[in-house]
Amino acid sequence: MAQQGTAAGTRAGAGHAPVPRAKVLSRELSVFYGEKQALFDIALDINANQVTSLIGPSGCGKSTFLRCINRMNDVIDTCRVTGSIRLDGHEVYDPMVDVVSLRRRVGMVFQKPNPFPKSIFENVAYGPKIHGLTKGRGELEELVVSSLVRAGLFEEVKDRLQEPGTSLSGGQQQRLCIARAIAVGPEVILMDEPCSALDPIATARIEELIDELRQTYTIVVVTHSMQQAARISQRTAFFHLGVLVEAGDTSKIFTNPEDGRTQDYITGRFG
């Protein structure tokens, strides 16, 4: 019953914006780890060219939901997904879907910056190489540079593209990971607590970057910080114990939540 209510609320929330289009759409999505159910009948719309943040106490299933969108959960043997999650209307968990091309369309940035132990250049070039996106060295170099530019990292690393990616600072590494995700030309970028391992200045840079990237990509960010959700996202979804409690415009969630649990969480009464 509660899920039905949220779904209705989602649609109501979507009414404000100039016809936002649902890029990702989940219905009755449940996820199990072995016997344990981690998500219960999630119905959530994620609009194109918006930043949607997922908030909630830890262990409530935010990462699990995020990892359904690009099927990163596939690598966990015990993980089982039921229900529906669609990208542009196509079922993500359809057995016909090619996971490799799905992940090309849905990029991911992780909590801890995880550049490959290779050069900065190779980090960004790897995705385009395996997908065969460029012809010749020149085109590849162009793509690497433009990706680094978009990730706001190029100016800082342009003289040392051959140095290892792991030699950068934490914030730079995270922007390198964003550049790496951008380089394969995704439509959706998933970020799982991308700033939780960074200092406030690096965090501010990433937040700015997320706001810029919204023009081109659909972005879903998991965050622990409510201030961050408020600063960067247009829509917010609040998860609690595997249930999507409430989703809607960020301003509404933070000023006038419908559910008591949301109210309690944003006022810091738990979590």
């Binding site: 490799v100 801890k112 995880n114």
Partner: peptide
């Protein structure tokens, strides 16, 4: 080999054999 490297490679769309051949085995 840290799982984060595997996730990074899978995340940009490497197939499991590519993850092993390009990243895990060299490390």
């Amino acid at each position: 080999v840290p799982p984060s490297i595997r996730e990074a490679a899978l995340g940009v769309g490497a197939s499991p054999p590519q993850v092993v051949a390009h990243h895990v085995l060299p490390l």
